[in-house]
Nucleic acid binder design. Structure first.
Lengths: 91, 91
DNA sequence: TTAACATTTAACCTAAATGTTAATTGTATT
DNA sequence: AATACAATTAACATTTAGGTTAAATGTTAA
């Protein structure tokens, strides 16, 4: 079920862009929101999807909630793809 | 965008299972259908989603349509993930 | 305590995805 | 040509996803 959650989370362009942003460094929900043309509420839901997929982690810092990337779960996708491509490497 | 199509196609358990089946070898739409509890029409649509994402290819053989895996497009996902994990370069 | 700010949650709407059955298309067989 | 078979497409119902605004929650500071 983890793979399912992860892939569903990645199948949205805004969520992928959020991950790309967080790759550069942690930031608050509000900062993240500034990068997009949708409401804070919408971003908040995207963040919760990413969090459920364990792709990001959050910590509260005063009145801000800071999000950081957790790329480790992507390992599972890499593995699944690698198996699908055949156990031998051909590139 | 290709990555978007690919990830959306992968974000469905039936479609992932179809890819796993095709990894073992090509088969017809009917054969694929036998592995699932949904109708042939439903599988046919799943196949078209996979085909649009270029994850599979089809060739007609008489009254059968044979599907085969095309795992090469998964390379793009691998690359995107690798970059996200920081093992690659930024965009 | 109250006000202001950051963020999330709730309620609602619309669009997209997935499933079904029925009709259609394409091919083979008689 | 007529029938049967394989598969797709069309029409429709239901579910899920993503967006909005408004209300609720949590925190800081006057």
């Amino acid at each position: 079920m983890a793979l399912q959650n992860t892939l569903k989370a990645l199948a949205d362009p805004i969520r992928r862009e959020i991950l790309n942003l967080l790759k550069e460094g942690s930031m608050s929900a509000g900062e993240i929101t500034n990068y997009f043309d949708v409401t804070a509420a919408s971003i908040s839901r995207h963040l919760s999807v990413l969090k459920d997929a364990d792709l990001i982690r959050d910590t509260r810092d005063g009145k801000y909630i800071i999000y950081e990337l957790n790329a480790s779960v992507l390992e599972e996708i890499m593995l699944w793809i690698t198996e699908l491509k055949g156990d031998g490497r051909n590139d």
